[in-house]
Simulated assay, not measured.
Amino acid sequence: MAQHSVFRLPVHDLMGKPGSMRELDLRVNTPEKWGEAVAQVPEGAELEASGQLESVHEGILASGEIHTRAEAQCVRCLDPIGVDIDTEFTELFAYSGQEGYDSEVVDETIDLGVVVRDQVVLQLPFQPMCSPDCPGLDPETGEKRPEGWQESTEERIDPRWDALRELMEHDPTPNENGTSRE
């Protein structure tokens, strides 16, 4: 994470005081784009994190909720859509020198950047849709199908089989006795 992370929080007032806590209310813009593929949180998107920072014997326990908005593309019709991301986090920032913890208190600060990013990216949809009944694109024309479009109930046969179908309909074939079927 960058040296001057927007997610870096001072915790000097909580260090070494198990049981003490304070509220967390963080409103920042994302420092970079998070996610790839069809859904991502763009750089500069508004992000809110609220919860609490609590001093425990091992370090500082950060927990709370995250809210932001991702930009996506409907996988059926390719229209742009917005996706609200709401998730929770809990992370223990151990005092420096303790082994077995992923996050540490460094210079009397904690950096929620990796925790927040990971939680947000895990919530990004793999196949976002503008609506559950999105009709998608017409495979023949590539145009977006109109709202309320319904799949035809008539069975369509692949046009590559037309020549064989015509042979079967117009060419009598002999059966096992050598006589034609008709």
Rank of each mutant, 00 (worst) to 15 (best):
G64Q: 06
Y95E: 00
A94R: 00
L92W: 05
S96T: 00
Q52K: 15
N29S: 08
P42G: 09
D86L: 06
V38Y: 09
A70I: 08
G35T: 11
E32S: 15
D79V: 01
G82T: 03
N29C: 07
Y95S: 01
D84K: 07
S96V: 00
E32H: 14
E71K: 00
L78I: 02
E48P: 15
R69S: 06
D84E: 04
E48F: 13
N29E: 10
S50Y: 14
A49V: 15
H57K: 12
L53Y: 08
C77L: 00
I81R: 01
T90W: 02
L47E: 13
D86V: 06
K33W: 12
K33T: 14
Q98F: 03
E99Y: 02
S63N: 11
G44E: 14
W34V: 15
S96H: 02
V28N: 08
A94W: 01
V83H: 03
E91C: 04
A72Q: 04
E88F: 04
E91K: 03
D84C: 04
E32K: 11
A39M: 10
G44V: 15
R69D: 04
E43A: 13
I81V: 00
R76K: 02
V41L: 12
W34E: 12
D79A: 00
H67K: 10
D84Q: 05
I85F: 06
G64K: 05
S50R: 14
F89A: 03
E48S: 15
H67Y: 10
G64V: 06
G64M: 06
L47V: 14
